[in-house]
Computed example of a mutant assay.
Amino acid sequence: MTALKDLAKKYFDAFSARDISGVGGALAANVTLRDWEISKQGIDDVLAATAAIFASCRTIDVVVTALYEESGSVLAELEISFDGGEPLRVLDVLEFDDVGLISSIRAFKG
């Protein structure tokens, strides 16, 4: 596995463990987050949105079904279950900065 894929996997592991510190450690200060419901900019707003997700459930299970890397970005096909419910299929596009921190997260359903 490449270094960026390893970093992406660590981020997803932290998210699945509901480890806000681990998630924060993977993000650049100027990170952006966009999904089908929200758009946030800056680490404080992105972590607040992540904390709200963590507060909305007891368990999160993130299964990475495929990882692809291209030019400083990792695309991840995911199955995410909240509280043991039906998995939500998601495609995450993670862009990394020069020091290996996530500078952009774009998430798409399907």
Score class of each variant (00 low, 15 high):
residue 24 G to K: 12
residue 47 L to M: 14
residue 66 A to M: 11
residue 91 L to T: 02
residue 99 V to K: 15
residue 60 I to V: 12
residue 24 G to H: 01
residue 70 E to I: 04
residue 23 V to N: 01
residue 91 L to K: 05
residue 31 V to K: 02
residue 28 A to N: 01
residue 52 A to D: 15
residue 84 G to S: 05
residue 77 E to T: 05
residue 74 V to T: 00
residue 63 V to F: 10
residue 31 V to E: 06
residue 14 A to G: 04
residue 93 V to G: 00
residue 21 S to E: 15
residue 29 A to W: 10
residue 59 T to P: 04
residue 59 T to E: 06
residue 75 L to Y: 03
residue 8 A to K: 00
residue 75 L to V: 14
residue 38 I to L: 14
residue 58 R to Q: 15
residue 85 G to C: 11
residue 21 S to N: 14
residue 30 N to E: 12
residue 89 R to L: 15
residue 23 V to Y: 01
residue 76 A to M: 07
residue 69 E to C: 01
residue 36 W to G: 11
residue 63 V to Q: 15
residue 8 A to S: 04
residue 87 P to W: 11
residue 55 A to L: 04
residue 15 F to L: 09
residue 68 Y to I: 15
residue 42 G to S: 09
residue 39 S to Q: 15
residue 67 L to C: 08
residue 71 S to T: 10
residue 65 T to H: 12
residue 17 A to W: 07
residue 44 D to M: 13
residue 81 S to G: 07
residue 57 C to I: 02
residue 19 D to G: 03
residue 7 L to F: 12
residue 67 L to F: 00
residue 30 N to H: 01
residue 41 Q to C: 04
residue 7 L to V: 10
residue 44 D to C: 09
residue 46 V to Q: 09
residue 48 A to F: 00
residue 33 L to T: 05
residue 83 D to V: 00
residue 88 L to D: 08
residue 54 F to N: 05
residue 7 L to M: 13
residue 63 V to L: 14
residue 77 E to M: 04
residue 31 V to I: 11
residue 32 T to H: 06
residue 66 A to C: 07
residue 57 C to V: 00
residue 11 Y to M: 00
residue 100 G to Y: 05
residue 53 I to L: 02
residue 69 E to F: 06
residue 54 F to L: 02
residue 13 D to S: 13
residue 54 F to Y: 11
residue 61 D to N: 11
residue 82 F to H: 00
residue 67 L to R: 03
residue 87 P to G: 06
residue 81 S to Y: 03
residue 92 D to G: 10
residue 76 A to T: 05
residue 93 V to R: 04
residue 61 D to K: 13
residue 83 D to Q: 05
residue 100 G to D: 09
residue 78 L to H: 03
residue 27 L to W: 12
residue 42 G to E: 07
residue 46 V to F: 11
residue 72 G to S: 01
residue 78 L to V: 08
residue 61 D to T: 10
